[in-house]
Simulated scan of single mutants.
Amino acid sequence: MKTFQLSGTPREDLGKKAAKAIRKESQIPAVLYGSSPVELPYTGKLSSGDKLVELDHGKGLIVTDFTITFDSIRKLVYSPEIFLVELDLKGNKKVKAIVKEIQFHPVSDAILHVDFLEVFDDKPIVIEVPVQLEGHSEGVKAGGKLGLEMRKLKVKALSSAVPEQLVINIDHLGLGKTVQVGELHFEGLELMNAKNAVVCGVKLTRAARGAATTPGK
């Protein structure tokens, strides 16, 4: 997985009014969620922009509010690739993270808010990875039409084990056949999608049906 360098500025003014003012300055509000709950009461020191959110069962989560610019995140958001973000919160702290969620304006599609999840080298993450088909399907050679039903698959793995793409060979995929999630295996990865979900398949076309029913074929 490729890395993406991103800088942010911690902020302490929260709420809808503050977020609206930030957007008017061409900034985007963002949040970093610590990927591991901490024990309560928390005895560590919180940095600027950090707050402690109480969870259940004596646990808490450190959440950092900050801002980023559109130019700094544009290539991260509008890309088919996935990235491990190296996030520098300007003197506050440097962490590794992945994009958890992006909120867009329903009309203009402008980026309203970005959520990040902190990543640790020894703890697995859940992330969607693009699917890449390779090879020449037997079913397509026979006149069928190849369809990719799932462009990304959700995987659970250590960040160091997450590939840029999940490559699936389709050389032996025949007419009317499909590849389901349960048939796939990638070293070091756990696929989180339903096992019976169809990733890709070769559909019968009229031409293929005609060739199959033509005498002498």
Rank of each mutant, 00 (worst) to 15 (best):
V199C: 04
E149W: 06
V129H: 07
E187V: 03
R206E: 09
L146Q: 04
V155G: 03
L189F: 13
D122C: 11
I127Y: 03
E128A: 15
T214C: 09
G147L: 13
V140K: 11
L148F: 01
V167M: 06
G182I: 10
T213P: 07
S159N: 09
A211D: 07
V126N: 15
E149G: 02
L173N: 05
A197P: 00
V131N: 08
E134Y: 04
K141T: 02
A212D: 06
E138Q: 07
P130K: 11
G201W: 01
A157N: 08
E190M: 08
L148S: 06
E190P: 00
M192R: 11
G182S: 14
V140W: 04
A207C: 06
Q132I: 01
A207G: 13
V140P: 01
A197G: 04
A212C: 00
L184R: 07
Q165K: 15
K152N: 12
M192I: 15
K145D: 10
G143E: 01
R151T: 13
E128N: 15
P130I: 10
T205I: 00
I125M: 02
G147F: 06
N169V: 04
D171T: 06
L146T: 01
H185N: 12
P163D: 05
L158Q: 10
S160F: 05
K203H: 14
V129I: 09
V155K: 06
L173E: 05
G176K: 09
E183S: 15
K177N: 04
V155Q: 07
V162C: 05
P124D: 03
N169D: 15
D122M: 08
R209Q: 14
G188F: 08
A161R: 14
D122Q: 11
S137V: 00
D122W: 05
K123H: 09
L184I: 15
E190Y: 02
D171F: 04
V126D: 15
V202C: 10
C200M: 03
C200T: 10
A211Y: 14
G210D: 06
K195C: 00
I168H: 03
Q132M: 07
I127N: 09
V179S: 02
H136D: 10
G135M: 04
Q132P: 00
N193V: 15
R206F: 03
K203Q: 12
T213S: 11
A211L: 11
V131G: 11
